[in-house]
Computed example of a mutant assay.
Amino acid sequence: MTQMNTEEPGVSAAVELRAVRKTFGEVSAVDGVDLEIGDGEFFAMLGPSGSGKTTVLRMIAGFETPTSGSIRLGGREVTKLPPFERDVNTVFQDYALFPHMNVLANVEYGLKVKKVPKAERRERALEALASVRLEGFETRRPGQLSGGQRQRVALARALVNRPKVLLLDEPLGALDLKLREEMQVELKAIQREVGITFLFVTHDQEEALTMADRVAVFNAGRIEQVGTPADVYEQPATAFVAGFVGTSNLIEGEAAQSILGRPGVYSVRPEKLRVDTDLDAELPEDEHSATGTVAEVVYAGAATRFVVDLDAGGRLVALQQNLQSSSMDVLKLREARVRLAWRREHEFAIAGPT
Rank of each mutant, 00 (worst) to 15 (best):
T2N: 10
Q3D: 14
A13C: 01
S28Q: 12
A29Q: 06
V30M: 07
E36L: 11
I37E: 08
G38V: 06
A44T: 12
S49Y: 10
S49V: 04
I60N: 01
T65M: 08
R72D: 06
L73Y: 06
G74S: 07
E77F: 04
V88N: 09
V88F: 06
T90P: 07
F92L: 08
H100V: 02
M101S: 14
L104V: 08
V107I: 10
E108N: 15
G110Y: 07
G110D: 06
L111P: 11
V113D: 12
K114S: 15
L129S: 00
S146G: 12
S146H: 11
S146L: 05
Q151E: 10
R152C: 02
R162L: 02
A174S: 15
L175E: 13
D176L: 03
M183F: 12
K188D: 02
V194Y: 03
F198T: 08
F198S: 03
E206G: 09
V217H: 01
P229N: 04
D231V: 01
Q235V: 14
A237K: 03
V241Y: 07
V241R: 00
N249S: 14
E252I: 07
Q257E: 02
I259F: 03
P263Y: 01
G264W: 00
P284Q: 00
E287C: 12
A290F: 01
A295L: 15
A300M: 11
V308N: 06
V308K: 09
G314A: 05
L333C: 03
A341C: 10
A351G: 05
A351E: 09
